[in-house]
């Protein structure tokens, strides 16, 4: 048997996975990097993005490209607003205590998940891709939409990187990340930066959710795996490090693609969870990271 076609397919699928992981994980990493808190409800923001895409497809008849474009703008905005409210109403009040934040975002996770269950229902629902184009390989055809996912992800990740380097907001975020107290003393409105960062992190997850729906389906529990994989990517890449996160997303996305050719998905997941635990225990700065500040 010739393995090459399988491996080519696995590589392509791995790249798509890596794109989704990178977007979702960057949101988590951004929030952790600047605010030093872990958002367990991050996977639900991903779900809400996907459900938003489905909702747009329902509400806007006509060509799927129209509703998809609308979803790509509207869903992240709505999710961002929700995250902003969660920051104001919950996280700010517990003063971003790391442990209390985890417990309350677990609460938020259940609330969002169950509200989606009550409204959207327990079934998985499909959404049409904005366009149909098949790339022909000698052995199989491959959906052109998946290329689009990769392109959008690269554009957004690059955009975030440039924004962090070259804009005023990026500078403010980096200053806040470096030292909250000092930033405050320099007149940076740390409260608003936190709310904005939390919203921005959620929006990245929501975009990933929108992008994924035409490829898979929307379901109220779909946030679970992206959350887990984001943890894996962020921790292996080094907590709070953007380049590390992207590198880890590519590595793990590809590994996931290749491993699933040979192993069952459950076994691959067991492997990733243990990897996260052991990296945190033995290499707390991540596989690519240097020492982190305490």
């Amino acid at each position: 048997m010739n393995l090459a076609p399988y491996l080519l397919l696995a590589t392509l699928e791995g790249l798509v996975q890596a794109s989704v992981f990178a977007l979702t994980a960057l949101g988590l990493s951004l929030v952790f990097g600047v605010m030093r808190v872990v958002n367990v409800a991050h996977g639900e923001f991903f779900t809400l993005g996907a459900v938003g895409a489905w909702l747009c497809a329902m509400l806007l008849p006509g060509h799927p490209a129209i509703s998809f474009a609308a979803a790509l703008v509207a869903a992240p905005l709505a999710v961002g607003a929700l995250a902003w409210a969660a920051d104001r109403l919950i996280l700010k009040r517990i003063d971003y205590d790391p442990e209390a934040t985890i417990v309350s975002t677990i609460g938020l996770m259940y609330v969002i998940q169950q509200v989606v269950l009550m409204t959207f229902g327990p079934d998985a629902r499909a959404v049409d891709a904005p366009f149909w184009y098949t790339i022909r390989f000698p052995w199989f055809g491959w959906s052109g939409y998946k290329v689009f996912i990769i392109v959008v992800a690269v554009a957004l990740v690059g955009g975030l990187w440039l924004a962090m380097r070259h804009t005023r907001f990026g500078l403010i975020m980096r200053a806040t990340q470096y030292d909250r107290e000092t930033a405050q003393n320099f007149g940076i409105p740390v409260d608003r930066v936190y709310a904005a960062v939390f919203a921005l992190g959620a929006m990245f997850a929501a975009v990933a959710g929108v992008l994924v729906v035409p490829n898979s389906q929307a379901h109220y529990l779909m946030g679970h795996d992206p959350l887990l994989m984001s943890f894996v990517v962020v921790i292996v890449g080094g907590l709070g490090s953007l380049p590390g996160t992207v590198a880890a997303a590519v590595l793990i996305g590809m590994a996931d693609g290749w491993l699933s050719v040979f192993f069952s998905p459950t076994l691959a997941k067991i492997f990733s969870t243990l990897l996260v635990a052991l990296v945190l225990v033995f290499r707390p700065a991540g596989l690519f990271g240097k020492a982190v500040r305490a």
Binding site: I94, S104, G107, Y110, I112
Partner: peptide
Amino acid sequence: SAYLIAVGVLLIVLTL
């Protein structure tokens, strides 16, 4: 069937 919503709300209320 969405009883877990109570679990979620309680977790938030308790921490707050």
